[in-house]
Design a protein around this nucleic acid. Structure first.
Length: 125
DNA sequence: ATAATGACTGGGG
DNA sequence: ACCCCAGCCATTA
């Protein structure tokens, strides 16, 4: 529940738990995570949660991209470049326009039982 | 309590 | 298919 002495909110914890379930080589959408947590319109907040992650966390933040299949961070800058490298190292393929085929690499999500476990985990780590 | 802040989205043009 | 924009919403200051 604590990251670098910083207490995070329940919603942020739920986001982190959900993202931890995305397997290597797969990607999820900000909106997809938001819907999974029962807050379908909190996509921006999901981005904010990942934004506030400390470096060195065990959350595979790189596996979350936008609904267009592209990396939201500026891919010309260091952050976006790192995200792309990390994903490619997991086998994720980018087309010539920097897009990921969500049909191929999109995470199918959790079943209901796992979803409840995620929510529960976030509540009581 | 109020206002600002994003690693977002869906729809319209 | 691409660009623009209004709507969104948990967190911060």
């Amino acid at each position: 529940m604590c990251y670098n002495s910083v207490m995070t909110s329940l919603f942020f914890e739920q986001v982190y738990q959900a993202v931890r379930h995305i397997p290597p080589g797969k990607v999820a959408t900000y909106g997809q995570i938001a819907r999974l947590l029962g807050n379908p319109r909190a996509a921006r907040t999901v981005g904010w949660a990942l934004h506030s992650l400390p470096s060195g966390s065990d959350v595979p933040w790189q596996r979350v991209i936008n609904a267009s299949g592209t990396i939201s961070l500026d891919t010309r800058g260091p952050g976006g470049a790192i995200q792309r490298v990390l994903l490619e190292a997991e086998g994720v393929v980018f087309d010539d326009q920097g897009r990921v085929d969500l049909e191929t690499h999109g995470w199918t999500g959790l079943d209901l039982v796992e979803r409840d476990q995620v929510l529960q985990l976030a509540r009581e780590p």
